[in-house]
């Protein structure tokens, strides 16, 4: 954890310095006594840099004994796969619209989470169609909202 904290603190300090640099490039027209739109980002960046320094100094204290964050490659891979699936859903919904891709997404999420022992094709299909129908009833019919439409066609 100490190593993680040191890296985190350095990243936060670096981010704070980047914000300071970006803030200094903001151009604006000043009113009478108004400190302008740079003040608040400077304030936020200053707190970030000071906090980063605080975390760095604390991580250096030998009496702070904390557990290290275990890096489980299998977990990262599974999380990554799921995240890619969500990203694909977002992209596909923009291209093909809500109704075309949602049953597939629900099926895929069900398939992934259920695992080989619990999953069944018909259950996934029913869940996918049921979810899509429920969202249609609640949002389109019930609340009169629009859902994403295909931009490809």
């Amino acid at each position: 954890m100490q190593r993680t904290d040191r890296i985190t603190s350095l990243a936060l300090i670096g981010l704070g310095l980047i914000v300071v640099w970006l803030t200094s490039r903001i151009t604006y027209t000043s009113f009478t006594d108004d400190p302008g739109p740079r003040l608040f980002p400077y304030f936020g960046a200053a707190v970030l840099i000071l906090s980063g320094l605080g975390i760095f100094l604390r991580a250096g204290r030998s009496e702070i004994a904390e557990e290290t964050i275990p890096v489980d490659r299998a977990q990262i891979r599974r999380g990554g796969i799921f995240f890619v699936l969500l990203a694909l859903y977002a992209l596909a919904m923009k291209l093909f619209g809500f109704y075309a891709v949602t049953p597939l997404l629900v099926f895929a999420v069900y398939w992934l989470i259920a695992g080989p022992k619990r999953r069944a094709v018909w259950r996934g299909a029913v869940l996918g169609l049921g979810c899509t129908l429920a969202v249609y009833l609640l949002f389109t019919l019930g609340l009169g909202s629009y859902l994403p439409e295909a931009s490809m066609f």
Partner: peptide, 9 residues
């Protein structure tokens, strides 16, 4: 596996 897919949607 039944609860999370609707939450994602």
């Amino acid at each position: 596996h039944y609860l999370y897919p609707p939450i994602v949607v």
